[in-house]
Computed example of a mutant assay.
Amino acid sequence: MARLSWFPIAFFLVLALSCAIDVMAGGEGSLRHEQCGAACDYRCSETSHKNPCIEFCSMCCQKCLCVPSGTYGHKEECPCYDNWKTKEGGPKCP
């Protein structure tokens, strides 16, 4: 019977954690145009190629209104950002 009493608590914690992850990650269209600069500054903060990174990140953010969390990876959070490719087929957005 004790196991059943933990179920509502565990369910609430899982629900709260999933909501927190959604808020942190943002998602497609979660930014406003004026927020792109700060999001791209952070996204490109650890690269040695800051100017091109910020330029392409800003272009992608203006189109998609989303920048993936972190400084690398996590592109699945923003499908538009992830799917935009160069003429050669490589990723357009850093």
Rank of each mutant, 00 (worst) to 15 (best):
M1A: 08
A2H: 13
A2K: 09
A2I: 12
R3M: 15
S5R: 00
S5I: 10
F7D: 06
F7E: 02
F7S: 02
P8T: 00
P8S: 03
I9Y: 00
A10T: 07
A10F: 06
A10S: 03
F11K: 04
L13A: 09
V14K: 04
L15T: 07
A16M: 02
A16D: 05
L17W: 06
L17C: 11
L17A: 05
S18P: 06
S18K: 01
C19E: 11
C19P: 07
A20K: 03
I21T: 09
I21Q: 05
D22M: 02
V23R: 01
V23M: 03
V23S: 08
G26W: 00
G26I: 01
G26N: 09
G27E: 08
G29Y: 10
G29W: 05
G29K: 15
S30N: 13
S30P: 06
S30D: 08
L31A: 12
R32K: 15
E34K: 15
Q35P: 07
Q35D: 15
C36D: 14
G37C: 10
G37M: 11
G37V: 15
G37Q: 09
G37P: 12
A39C: 09
A39D: 01
A39L: 07
C40F: 07
C40Q: 14
C40A: 14
D41C: 11
D41T: 05
Y42P: 11
R43W: 04
E46P: 05
E46G: 13
E46S: 14
E46F: 12
T47N: 06
T47L: 07
T47D: 11
K50W: 10
K50I: 13
N51I: 07
P52E: 13
P52S: 14
P52I: 03
I54P: 05
I54M: 06
I54T: 14
E55Q: 11
E55P: 04
F56K: 13
F56T: 10
F56Q: 15
C57D: 06
C57I: 07
S58Q: 09
S58H: 14
M59R: 14
M59D: 15
M59H: 11
M59N: 14
C61A: 09
Q62M: 12
Q62P: 13
K63L: 11
K63W: 14
C64I: 03
L65G: 09
C66T: 13
C66V: 04
C66K: 04
C66L: 03
V67G: 13
V67H: 05
P68V: 10
P68F: 06
P68M: 06
P68K: 08
S69M: 13
S69Q: 08
G70Q: 10
T71C: 04
T71I: 05
Y72F: 13
Y72I: 12
G73M: 01
H74Q: 15
H74V: 13
K75D: 14
K75Y: 11
E76F: 11
E77N: 08
E77H: 04
C78K: 01
P79V: 02
P79E: 05
C80Y: 06
Y81D: 04
D82I: 00
N83D: 06
N83G: 14
W84A: 08
W84K: 13
W84P: 02
T86S: 01
T86W: 02
K87F: 08
K87I: 07
K87M: 08
E88H: 03
E88K: 02
E88M: 03
E88G: 10
E88T: 05
G89H: 06
G89S: 07
G89R: 04
P91Q: 02
K92Q: 00
K92M: 08
C93G: 00
P94Y: 03
P94W: 00
